[in-house]
Amino acid sequence: MTATEGKNEIIAIEPGELSVKAMEMKSKGLRLSQACAAWLRKEEKLELSYSFVDDETYDMFNVRISLDNDKRDTEIASISDIFPYAAFYENEMRELFGANIKVINLDLHNKLYRIEEETPFVPKKEGQN
C-alpha cells in the first residue's frame, strides 16, 4: 500500500467569500467533511471552519472565517444550497456558538439539540440581556 497522507491546509477567507469558495470546492469534486465553530477564550475571537476533503487524494482544505468579538454578528450566507447536508452543521454552529448564519435550507431555529441551558456559549456583550 502507498500511504498518501494528503495535504492539510488552512485557508483564511473573509465572511463574504464563503459561498464562492464553497462553489469552487464543489466544482473540484470535493466533499464537505465537517464544519465547526470555536470560541477562542484568550483572543476573544469566533472562528468558523469548513473542511473540504478529496476522497481520492485524501487532501483536506479547511476554510476559515475569523471574526473578532465586536464583529461576531456578521451575517454569513449559508452554504446549504451548495452542500445540502451542511444544514446540520450550520444549525449546530448557530445554536451553540451564535454564528449568524442566514438562510439555512433546513432551518431548525436553534432547536437542533433542544437543550435547556442558555445558548450560545459565548460571553455576552455589553448592553445585551
Binding site: 465537517q34 465547526c36 470555536a38 484568550k42 473542511s51
Partner: peptide
C-alpha cells in the same frame, strides 16, 4: 474528524469530534 485548538493552558479552547453517523444522517 477531530479538531483541537489549544491555547497554551492545560484547558483546550475547543475539542470537536465529527462522528461518522452525523455524516451519514443525510
Amino acid at each position: 474528524d477531530y479538531y483541537i485548538k489549544g491555547n497554551g493552558t492545560p484547558n483546550l479552547d475547543r475539542m470537536r469530534v465529527r462522528t461518522p453517523t452525523f455524516a451519514n444522517l443525510a
